[in-house]
Structures are given as C-alpha cells and as structure tokens.
Design a protein around this nucleic acid. Structure first.
Length: 546
DNA sequence: AAGCATGGCAACCGCCGAATC
DNA sequence: CGATTCGGCGGTTGCCATGCT
C-alpha cells in the first residue's frame, strides 16, 4: 500500500489566502521550517489548506527572499534569452533570476514578453516581406512536390498540437523549401544571409555570391534527392554508419551520460516528446525531421531549444543523453544525441542571426561511458564573430567561439568519474564560466585556448564564411545524416555538429535554418566529394578523442 | 457613470518522476 | 513489484483592477 492521503480534499479551503492565513503560515515556517513535509504542515500550522497550497503560497509569495515588483530590463533580457534557449522551463529560468519565482516569470512572459515578442516579430515580418522571398522554384519535381505537401501537412499537424504561444510559434516569412534547386543566378530572399550580413559592419563591402565548390557539389545541390550525402554513400558505408550509431558503446555511453546528468539536474529530461512548438505561419514544417526556414532569427524560430538535439532515428531519441548549453549567464541542459556528434543550442536570442552564443560548455558524448569532454571556453573578446555584436551594445566584444580545438585530449579534460561531485548543479548554476572546467584542468585549458586562438582564428573565420555560403546556397544540404529518410531535411531542433564546429558557426547556421549535421563519416564523405572546401581542421583531433 | 474589454497575477489543476509502503 | 502518495512543474483558470467607450 502507499502512503496515507495527504489531506481531506473536502475540508480544505481553496481560493485566495487571507492575511490571517498568511501570517499563520509564515509564523509556522519561520519557527519550524517546512520540515520537509508540506502535507502535514497545514494541520500543524492550524491551517485548513492543502499542503500543496501551502507550499505554493510560501514559494510564490511569502518567502522572504521573493522579489516583488517590476522586472528590470536585465531580467527581461535574461528571460528572453533563456526562453529562447530552453523554452518554458520556468523553474530553470527562475533559477537564473534571484528572487523571482517560476510563477512570476511565467506570468510575466505570458502577459507581457510574449506579446512584445509577437509584435516585434510581426514588425519584422512585414519588413522582410518581398517578392523575392516567395521564390517559386521552377523545376519542381513531383518528388519535391510530395515533399512540400508532406511538409505542409506536418506543419498543420504540429500547429494543431501546439496550443501554447511561444517564441517558437511566432510567425515568420516564408522561405525556400529545403531542396529548392539553386543556381548562381537565383535571387535570394531579403532575409537571407547576405542581406543580413550587409547590414552588419563586418562586411565593409558585400561579398560576391558564392560559387559551388565543385561540379559534384552543384550536382548534388540540384539533385532531387534531399539527402545527397546519403545518396553518395555506398550501402556498405551506410551500414557502417548505422552500426556506429547503434553501437553498444555509444548507447551505453548515452544512457550513462543521461543518467548522470539527470542526477545532476535532478529533473526529468528536457522533453523531446512533447509537442514541439511549431512555426505558425512559416509554411514550413517544424517537425524535427524537417526543415527549418532559412533566415530566421533563432530567437523566433520554431525551434524549441529544449528539443535542440538531433536524432537520427527514433531509437537514438530513446537513447539520448544530455548536454549543457548556455552562455555566461545561463547554463542549461539540453538533449544531445548519443551519436558521435554534439548537439547544443548556442543561440543568443537577440542576435539578428540568432548567433553569438558565448561560453558554452560543450559536452561531447561521443566518447564512451560517460566521459564528458568539456569543451574549452574562450573568454569574451578573444574571438569575435564575423558579425560582431552590434545588435546588442551590451554584447560588444563578446562573441567568443567554442570549438573542440581547445578541448584537450579526452582523458585529460573529460569528466572525472572519480570525482562526480565537483560539478553539481547548484554550484554549476552560480559558477562563473571560467570555473566550469574542473580547476585542475583550467590552466591547461587556458593554454590550449591561447594556442587555438592564435592558430585558428583566421582559418576558422574563413571556413565559417564558406559554411555560410554553403548554407545559404542550399539550406538543408548540410543535414547529412544518412539514416534520415528521404525528405528529412535538417533537424530543426538540433545542431548536430562535429566536435570542432564552433557554437557561433552553428548558431549562425541554425539561425539560418541550416542544421549542420556533421559526423566524421559525413565529413569524410564531404571531403571526398566536395573537396577541401569542406576541410575541417579539427576533424582528426576529434577522431583521436573518440 | 455604467458596462464591457483587457491585463495582471494568484491560485488551481493535472501530470510525472521519485519516494514510500 | 505494484499501488499509492509526495513534491515539483508547466499550463490554465478565474478573480480583480484598470482602461476604454
């Protein structure tokens, strides 16, 4: 048998609390504390209330450290950013705002911020409207039409399932379907990368439109097959990839990592099964296996950050682990795929491109059995994004990049299983970003960071821009998971990037609706077929750490 | 001034994982 | 190991204050 009933539901008072009740509750808790048992508290305190009600009243109103009154701009910004990152995880958001309760924040969001965001989005929508944004691809094949039909259908379904208005469900201008045949003469929608880049100081002069890096690439881009890489892979290679994905090691690693982080966070996994907020009017499906419109501000994209992981299959979803994502202000768990890739959501919600995630501790679950590789953190100002951060004066100078190049070898920087408590959640929540790394690795990491900064900055920037080019020219092409069936373009809830990819790079690409989905295998495929333009400097390093 | 609409927010509801029996 | 409750969370409701006509 279970426990005794918590209270007599028929004889408990409901509704607003009277000052007398408040006083009784406060006096009791001041004197005795909650005793860890809310159910017995009301009777002891002389209250005819349910324990749950008492708890709520205390936590949301009577607690002495509660901050009442208007939210500051900083708090507002924080809520925007966190909400864009993790969705409506009010308790997690509240944990970042001292004195604020989840209920407060939830109410504030629902009554004010959501509206603000909606208005802003509407404004942007009209600003971005242009004939070019509705390009009809002339060579639409029946397969493409089917694909689009499916996308539309999925979109409708997801809309129906999405009752809650979130940043993710706000309206967006339509954009190219995932496999729009592209050529060098195509006129890009106004909300494309180049136009956005033009608006930034980074580019003193507009770049020329990118060229295809190879005939093969052009051919692939034009291919009606939505997954060119999968097409290029031989059946043997595909089987190998499938084997990698399904390998016992990876699965167990994912399970163990997941378990560990679940303990750390003491919370259920961020939902990857709940209805995904959908794009209300983008005309693009928001299902995780489909395409995210290009040119979206990540903060307004249909991506629920809590679902930012990539799943190459349902099986992988079930085995998924967790990672941490955040910036200097927020460190939050997200789901990551137990594939040999890393999923993070590094988005700055207020960046025009959704870019600029700073200081993201990357957990690479690619290694076995819970060896969590902590990606090195680069301090602000060390590296800037190509776009600078003019979108937010507060972010001037920020834009640090994170990539695996500054991650030392797995054994040295991996999560120390012998000292599992050095990184518990409460401390994590309040730690400075520079403390995120186990202290004994900090110096080492710092040295690596400096080297990386010196050696790779320019190469990285160049490479990054090439990726933008690629992304712009063929959104979705970069979703290369061969296990995804045809038509499964980009997985908008995740950025399954390789270990050496930068948060900012991927953030930018994500902001564009591009889902970099690299794995070593894919990378090799890309190298083979597309040539060195796809070169990935750290790929080999990453391989070593696996 | 009355009636209605809207906004803000406290409180409730239902769900879920953990804990307990 | 199953049944049941607890604690916590996110979504929703409904009351009250304010603003508008």
């Amino acid at each position: 048998m279970g426990r005794a009933p918590c209270c007599d539901k028929a004889n408990v008072k409901k509704g607003p609390w009277s000052p007398d009740e408040d006083a009784k509750l406060k006096a009791f808790i001041d004197q005795h504390g909650t005793g860890g048992n809310w159910i017995t508290l009301p009777s002891k305190a002389g209250l005819k209330r349910c324990g749950k009600s008492c708890r709520l009243r205390w936590i949301n109103y009577l607690r002495p450290d509660i901050k009442h009154g208007n939210f500051t701009e900083d708090e507002e910004l924080m809520i925007y950013r966190l909400h864009a990152n993790i969705g409506s995880r009010w308790s997690l958001i509240a944990a970042q705002l001292p004195g604020r309760t989840d209920n407060d924040i939830k109410n504030y969001w629902n009554t004010r911020l959501k509206k603000k965001l909606s208005e802003r989005n509407l404004e942007q929508h009209y600003q971005q409207q242009s004939p070019a944004s509705n390009i009809q691809h002339s060579s639409s094949t029946s397969q493409q039409q089917q694909h689009e039909t499916r996308l539309a259908k999925e979109n409708n379904n997801s809309q129906a399932a999405d009752h809650s208005m979130t940043t993710s469900s706000l309206s967006f201008p339509p954009c190219n379907p995932p496999h729009t045949p592209l050529d060098a003469t195509i006129s890009m929608p106004q909300n494309n990368l180049i136009s956005i880049m033009k608006s930034h100081q980074y580019l003193s002069s507009p770049p020329s439109l990118p060229e295809f890096h190879s005939p093969q690439m052009a051919q692939d881009i034009a291919s009606p097959n939505p997954n060119p890489i999968a097409q290029l892979m031989t059946s043997v290679e595909q089987q190998k990839m499938a084997d990698i994905v399904k390998s016992e090691d990876l699965l167990s690693a994912a399970v163990e990592s997941s378990d560990h982080l679940l303990k750390i966070w003491g919370r259920q996994p961020l939902s990857h099964s709940s209805p995904t907020p959908s794009s209300a009017s983008s005309g693009i499906s928001t299902d995780r296996n489909t395409y995210t419109p290009a040119g979206l501000d990540r903060s307004e994209s249909n991506i629920n950050a809590a679902e930012c992981s990539v799943y190459s299959s349902e099986e992988q979803q079930q085995q998924s682990g967790h990672g941490l994502v955040g910036d200097s202000d927020a460190l939050l768990p997200v789901m990551v795929a137990p594939s040999p890739t890393l999923s993070i959501d590094p988005i700055h919600p207020h960046h025009p491109l959704g870019a600029g995630a700073d200081d993201v501790p990357a957990l690479d679950f690619s290694s076995k059995l819970g060896d969590v590789h902590v990606g090195g953190l680069l301090d602000d100002d060390m590296i800037r994004t190509p776009f600078g951060h003019e979108d937010s004066c507060q972010n001037q100078g920020e834009g640090s990049l994170l990539h695996s190049g500054n991650t030392v070898k797995g054994e040295e920087l991996s999560f120390d299983r012998e000292e599992p408590n050095w990184w518990p959640a409460p401390q994590l929540m309040s730690m400075q970003r520079t403390s995120l790394i186990n202290p004994k690795y900090q110096q080492q990491n710092h040295e690596v960071q400096q080297q990386i900064q010196q050696q790779q900055f320019f190469a990285f920037e160049q490479q990054q821009f090439h990726r933008y080019e690629d992304a712009m020219m063929c959104p979705g092409r970069l979703s290369l998971d061969p296990s995804i069936p045809n038509g499964s373009y980009g997985k908008p809830h995740s950025w399954n990037h390789g270990p050496s990819s930068s948060c900012n790079s991927n953030a930018l690409m994500s902001g564009l609706g591009i889902i970099p989905d690299y794995s070593i295998h894919h990378h090799h495929q890309q190298m083979r077929h597309y040539g060195p333009q796809f070169s990935w400097p750290d790929a080999m390093n990453w391989q070593e750490t696996r």
